[in-house]
């Protein structure tokens, strides 16, 4: 798993549960409390061990942690901004998700984000199909897509579907998006030009 993802997991655990909890979880995983370097690679097993350790220590299911991680990612300003480049409103943002893997690759060729495919069903619901090299990306995306609805000021219901369901192919995770109102509230501001760089 890319260090950037592991690092995000680390910052999520540290911010939400405190540095002491992170140190305990890192120790359980066999990591130093310094944790991960965002620009290095780590074996997938490290991430899996870390998630299991966090789940044990915090007494939270891995599913919950993964969804919360998705929401945390969307709250990081640089990531939020990169996501907002996807579109002017939440609908356009949802439509841009199919390009997310490619955009990630454009920034970091070895990032390996999951492949996302959108399908608008007959009843108007949007089915987002997530295929990553790790089963759990669907939950991360659920948290992320949900947090971005708030960011755009849209009202939407976003629920992960049971991966065992008959209409979900093996290896995929489906998310159901019910878009109720794209202009429900005032979203967070987004200026294309972004803040001036501190030299």
């Amino acid at each position: 798993m890319h260090g950037l993802i592991n690092r995000a997991l680390q910052s999520f655990l540290t911010l939400n549960y405190g540095p002491a909890a992170w140190s305990d979880i890192a120790r359980d995983t066999g990591l130093s409390p310094d944790g991960f370097e965002a620009m290095l690679h780590y074996p997938d097993s490290v991430t899996e061990t870390l998630l299991a350790a966090a789940s044990r220590r915090l007494d939270k299911s891995q599913d919950t942690l993964l969804e919360d991680l998705g929401a945390h990612l969307a709250s990081l300003e640089p990531v939020r901004r990169l996501l907002r480049f996807g579109g002017g409103d939440y609908w356009e943002f949802l439509m841009s998700l199919e390009e997310l893997q490619g955009r990630g690759q454009m920034a970091l060729p070895d990032l390996r984000l999951p492949e996302l495919a959108l399908n608008i069903e007959e009843n108007g619901l949007i089915r987002l199909r997530v295929r990553g090299d790790y089963l759990g990306w669907g939950l991360v995306m659920t948290g992320l897509v949900r947090a971005m609805a708030d960011d755009y000021g849209s009202l939407a219901l976003i629920e992960p579907l049971d991966p065992q369901a008959a209409d979900t192919p093996a290896g995929a995770e489906d998310i159901l998006v019910t878009l109720l109102d794209t202009a429900f509230a005032e979203g967070r501001t987004f200026d294309l030009a972004g803040p001036m760089e501190d030299a």
Binding site: P78, L82, A107, E197
Partner: peptide
């Protein structure tokens, strides 16, 4: 614009 920002994030990390 996206690339410019993504590049800045990556460079800062590096």
């Amino acid at each position: 614009l996206y690339l410019q920002e993504a590049k800045t994030v990556v460079l800062n990390e590096l």
